[in-house]
């Protein structure tokens, strides 16, 4: 079982680049511990900006730094950075087109029992609705590395959601197929297509394995690039299947499910089911317990596919 979190990998990649590029800057809002960025702050004090518990200031300062040539990565809990500083993301980052990367840490229901204030079940919808804002949810530590390497090469704003807990590997060392803004096919099948993002990719892959033992073959598509959604990759994967199921750690509105439904509905109409968190404060529990309760684990996903084919 993998013990390394995606946020640790993000810190590792940013540190590697900061050693050779003094323009790589990290900002935190009293969140360096939660973001696993304390090692970065320690090694690069001159490239680390602490703003205190002030998310609007966090994103505004990041935009100002970017305008003057810095490559800022602003990390704060996803629940806060995607809502408290939403307007700064919209105006100072996206509209002004500054090279700011917003890292929403402990995304989705990572904070489990801390309650709805600390959950970010709206961040995909909110960030995706901003013109010139990209939205990424990497699935495992290997893909997180590939994604950050790619983001360090570009100069446009983006929002990246990372979870708090270590997730089981979807890919393997030296075997993580990755093309920027192209969905990754995790496994191929012919009966159903399961499209997932972030930490829902692993349970989706496990669900496909489970279904295989029951005589159902399913493709699993890792749509880590929720915006820009890989519509061509999606339509290609959806060709010939009877059912499309989307899985996300997000509200049922405006997220991966909505976007996939739009593309399928317009181009290759067929049944699309959206598995997501409810439109309500989620039940108290660890994220694993929450996922199982709402059918977002391997068994739940497999059941949905089986019962709707």
């Amino acid at each position: 079982m993998n013990k390394i979190t995606n946020r640790q990998i993000a810190c590792e990649v940013l540190s590697e680049h900061a050693r050779v590029d003094r323009d790589v800057v990290v900002l935190c809002s009293d969140s360096r511990g939660s973001a696993s960025l304390a090692p970065f702050a320690k090694e690069f004090p001159a490239q680390f900006v602490e703003v205190g518990i002030a998310e609007q200031d966090l994103v505004g300062i990041a935009a100002g730094l970017a305008k003057c040539g810095k490559k800022p990565y602003a990390a704060s809990p996803a629940s806060f950075v995607s809502t408290r500083s939403y307007e700064q993301a919209k105006v100072d980052c996206a509209y002004s087109n500054t090279n700011v990367k917003l890292i929403g840490i402990s995304g989705g229901v990572s904070y489990g029992a801390l309650g709805m204030s600390h959950h970010s079940a709206q961040d995909i919808a909110a960030m995706s609705a901003i013109p010139n804002m990209r939205v990424y949810l990497p699935s495992d530590r290997f893909q997180t590395r590939c994604l950050f390497e790619a983001l360090l090469k570009d100069e446009s704003p983006a929002y990246i959601r990372l979870g708090r807990n270590a997730v089981e590997d979807v890919y393997a060392e030296g075997n993580c197929p990755f093309e920027m803004d192209k969905a990754t096919t995790v496994c191929e099948g012919s009966d159903a297509l399961i499209v997932a993002c972030g930490e829902m990719v692993k349970p989706a892959a496990d669900a496909a394995a489970l279904l295989k033992t029951q005589g159902i073959s399913a493709t699993v598509l890792d749509m880590y690039c929720v915006k820009p959604l890989d519509a061509a990759g999606l339509l290609n994967a959806a060709k010939g299947v009877k059912l499309v199921v989307t899985v996300e750690e997000h509200s049922p509105f405006g997220g991966l499910g909505s976007m996939v439904s739009q593309v399928i509905g317009a181009n290759d109409p067929k049944k699309v089911l959206n598995l997501a968190l409810p439109d309500a404060p989620v039940i108290t529990g660890t994220s694993k317990e929450v996922f199982a309760h709402y059918g977002l684990d391997a068994e739940g996903i497999a059941k949905t596919v089986r019962e709707n084919l």
């Binding site: 505004g60 300062i61 935009a63 970017a66 305008k67």
Partner: peptide
């Protein structure tokens, strides 16, 4: 805040 970021840079 944006100006703070610029001055900091």
């Amino acid at each position: 805040p944006v100006a703070v970021g610029m001055a900091l840079a």
